[in-house]
Design a protein around this nucleic acid. Structure first.
Lengths: 214, 214, 214, 214
DNA sequence: CAATAAACGAGACGGTACGTCGAGTCTTCCT
DNA sequence: AGGAAGACTCGACGTACCGTCTCGTTTATTG
């Protein structure tokens, strides 16, 4: 037969995006651990073999999926002029900390990360790294502006907001809205930014990976 | 009368404890998502039917298991005289924030919580509630001592440490040791404790549960 | 408390009958292999322990149940004056070959008999033996009357009707009514009765039990 | 090219045959009701999912298994020239009435047939139908030869031997050997064949199915 | 008539098989 | 040549039933 009902895209990467779109669609519908690869394959009119040809498993597909779609929260520098403005902008945009989708997905991936170091690396590189990069830029700029004391550990400060959001949303099950973000920024981050750390020296074991502890 | 080879305990909850002990044992060996109920049943010389008679599934057994074994980090008030001392004591003891086991388990349960509200309630009541209770006591005492400014939101402050520990350990994959705990306490919690919140009013939607949003 | 709502009968055999009645009731409802002992215990307001105190298992309870309730087909000699009349009377009464209940139960017990020789013996003694006894009386009387040739093997003749009924009902799934019984008697049993066996000598291995072949 | 360790057959039905072979092997070892599908799956290096993809349950697998392996007793017309010879040949060959295996399996299936009409149909079509077909041919030929009186009901006659064999083997637990077969043929089947049915008209409800009576 | 031992109801338990589901692999056919 | 389709193995899931066992109570029999 000569007229194919639906053409099969062959351009490298185009098919990939369609599959990831399907994954995202289902991810938002049913969440990470209700997501099945059969469903992804069906939704994308793809074969499971194709999925496993490009990714190592369910977790990596999902990592790619969320890394691709929600970029603004991690990869755009808002540069509003103040640290508070930057943090609010980063947290409250689509794909930011107030967005439930990436948060839930990260929750689903957490236990898988314990055993799968490849997956961990993938998450680090594709999802975390860009966000951390922007975070560092924002905080360093604020420090240069004098909003953060010179001796404050920026690395630590940047993790306050994500950590507290995760805890609130995933552990406590409470909503994360702009009010909460502002609350944390105003009452935890900014106070910590303006007060230099006391006698205790900078934490030394800061960078060590421990994922390889079995 | 001949002595029975393996006595069948009938005292209320005794069998339950044996099963949960087996669950804990395996949990520490293989982690949450490598844990199978068949293995628990085998380890406890129990039948799967018995497990399902008492619990609704793997997640609830695990909740009970960790809630029963690791108590000191949540249910003992150290009362060292200072907020810093109390927080360090709570975090660094067995079952505290530096203990990998409960952290990993919580990670495994997170995605299950999205769909299973019974499980969520179980975790809230059995695992979180006692720890939160002690935390509140510690922080209120510190506030009465003047270590925390009167208008600081204690609820928020208490979530800083768990949130940042989770983020570091489960997301970033970095180790959580006493140094890190001290770093967070000294450079984030205590500064935030001593500085009253600025213009922004107290976050209003603080208590709302959102687990019921499908 | 002094007024028991329902008294517990202790007279030996009375409780037994109540239990067997319950078993019969359920047997007719759901059939042999859908029957569970929990259901019997519940129906009889008895404990499973009681059941296992008196019987060795499900199969034996069922054997007792059918052996007790359906007696007329096996233990009453109709003595109508003719072989045909006797056979019709035996087959068409309640508990006889046209009665579905005992037939179905026997079907359910068949595969259990392969492995359980105690059960086999129980069925032989409690269910089969009385019927065979009456059958032999009826056939011997007919032979004395001359309705059956003197050299015909009565044992074989008596098994024609049960065998063909079982085959029709249980294997072919066709109904067994009086017409069919009459058809078999008139066209198979009686012709065989009036014609002496030819050259072939009487089958010698007639009585050997083979249930003990593993 | 490297030779695959265990080739995965994809030719239609080939995998099916391997599974059924395994089922037959285990069936002969342990019998019908000791047979487990896990064992079949293990023996065939198959997954239970595969079994349930092709069959609806244990009973249907077994039906297919016995229908496939034991054909000679049912699907080969011996045509020895005499009714007696034909019957002896059919009964005494492998898979015939003297073969214990199919008999035991039928016994195991009987009670399942009460509830499962799909299974009943499967047995009828796959196992019984071919045997009945050959039986009819043999008897019709004998009737044309004059060995059976013209007005004798062939259908009834053909069921004498299977019925009596089943009764002897499964109910009475006695062995079925060539002697017994000959005894039945000579003393029951052949006398009935040569004597026309008396007054009683042909049984009218002969064909009705009653499996649907709940 | 009270004490005692046997028998009982209730039902939890270990064990085993069931039938289902999803992950990841592999083969065949089609485009 | 490469992808869609989907069958396949593996292994965990949650359920059901059997036969055993323990517990606390009732009953019949003794002192």
């Amino acid at each position: 037969m000569s007229s194919p009902v639906h053409s099969r895209p062959r351009v490298e990467g185009e098919r990939e995006e369609q599959i990831l779109d399907a994954a995202v669609r289902l991810l938002l519908e049913v969440g990470y651990d209700r997501l099945t690869l059969d469903a992804v394959a069906l939704e994308a009119r793809a074969s499971k073999a194709t999925l496993y040809r490009r990714w190592r498993g369910k977790a990596e597909i999902v990592v790619d999926a969320i890394a691709r779609t929600k970029r603004c929260g991690g990869s755009v520098d808002p540069d509003t002029g103040t640290l508070r403005g930057d943090l609010m902008a980063m947290a409250c945009c689509d794909g930011g900390l107030t967005d439930d989708a990436p948060l839930s997905v990260v929750a689903g991936l957490m236990s898988a990360m314990k055993h799968d170091h490849e997956l961990t690396r993938a998450i680090q590189e594709r999802f975390l790294a860009p966000r951390i990069q922007i975070g560092r830029i924002v905080f360093e700029r604020a420090q240069r502006r004098g909003e953060i004391e010179p001796d404050v550990d920026i690395e630590l400060l940047f993790d306050v907001l994500p950590g507290m959001v995760m805890n609130r949303r995933l552990v406590l099950g409470k909503p994360v809205d702009e009010d909460f973000i502002a609350h944390v920024i105003d009452d935890v981050v900014l106070p910590a930014a303006r007060r230099s750390s006391p006698a205790v020296p900078t934490h030394t074991s800061n960078r060590e990976e421990i994922w390889n502890v079995s």
